[in-house]
Simulated assay, not measured.
Amino acid sequence: MSMEWNSKSSGTGEYAEVNGLNLYYETHGTGRPMVLLHGGLGSGEMFGPEVLPALAEHHQVILPDLQGHGRTADIDRPLEIPLMADDIAALIDHLGLDRPDVVGFSVGGGVALHTAAKYPEKVGRAVVTSAHVRRNAVPAEMLAQQGQVNAAAAEFMKDTPMYELYQRVAPRPEDFGRLLDKIGVAMAQDFDYSEEVRGLQVPTMIVAGDADMAPPSHYVEVFKLLDGGLRDGGWMGEGRPKGGHALAILPGLTHYNIVDSPLWATTVLAFLDAQQA
């Protein structure tokens, strides 16, 4: 499969000083603001060429590059999802945004989850895509592959979209090996974010492909933590989760192409905009 990570969508790029980080972000479109968070080893450019314009047609999309990714240089700090959530909360304050929706994929999905859980007063709604909430939800063979991610793997990644993107946009292209080391250390840590999910106070949609990194059953379990899938929804929706939460398992998609899909963009917009009623 040929992949090129470049949205080719025109936006305004700027930097914000937050938490000691020179955080790069772009702004696309107009409307109610949405912070859109990319996955590991990517950048804001990884959202498909049809997806970002579809979102920006309805919303002002704030598109950051997370710590050590894309145009945001790394700092002397672990690459940890809760810390990156603090960065996003600080960016929301820096930009004076009024409870933007926070939408994230993979690592960015974890960041969206933690931002919504820790800073509910700063977030309107959240969409958490392809982000398992327990490390052991992923098959053992995938965990073994993740354990092999380190700087030594950089040589074998030179034909990948991750490497090409980093070399093209990073402030210090030579840091790619350092990013791999930090990602590898982060992925080796055990985690269970079930309590963060249970405590969510903002309407949240859990999204995954039907052949994602973790099985669909895991995302159903996450939905159950949000009071979802436990009873009939009722004629008037009275049996739906009390917090306004939702679940979407998208057909024919994987961890590696879900944010290229117009179906994903449509699903995100349907959830965010229906909540306005």
Rank of each mutant, 00 (worst) to 15 (best):
M84K: 01
D260A: 12
G96K: 11
P100L: 13
G44N: 13
A85R: 06
G199W: 04
L253N: 07
A270S: 04
G234W: 14
H132M: 01
V133P: 05
Q148L: 05
K122Q: 14
D98N: 15
P64T: 05
F271I: 00
M46C: 12
D65Y: 10
A214Y: 05
S130Q: 07
V61E: 10
E195Q: 12
V51R: 11
P216V: 08
H132D: 04
M205P: 05
Q275H: 13
P78M: 00
E164G: 15
P64M: 08
Y193H: 14
P251V: 09
D76E: 13
R198E: 01
Y219L: 12
L143S: 04
K224V: 00
D159H: 14
P78Q: 01
D181I: 09
Q167Y: 05
G44P: 00
E141C: 02
G70M: 08
R198Y: 03
I88K: 03
P203M: 12
G39M: 05
R125K: 14
P251N: 07
R99P: 10
W235K: 14
L63D: 04
R134Q: 03
L269V: 02
T27L: 06
V127K: 10
E238T: 13
L63Y: 10
S9K: 13
F191N: 11
I62T: 04
L180Y: 03
A116D: 01
A152R: 13
K122W: 05
E155I: 15
R134M: 00
F47R: 08
V169R: 05
N257I: 10
E221C: 08
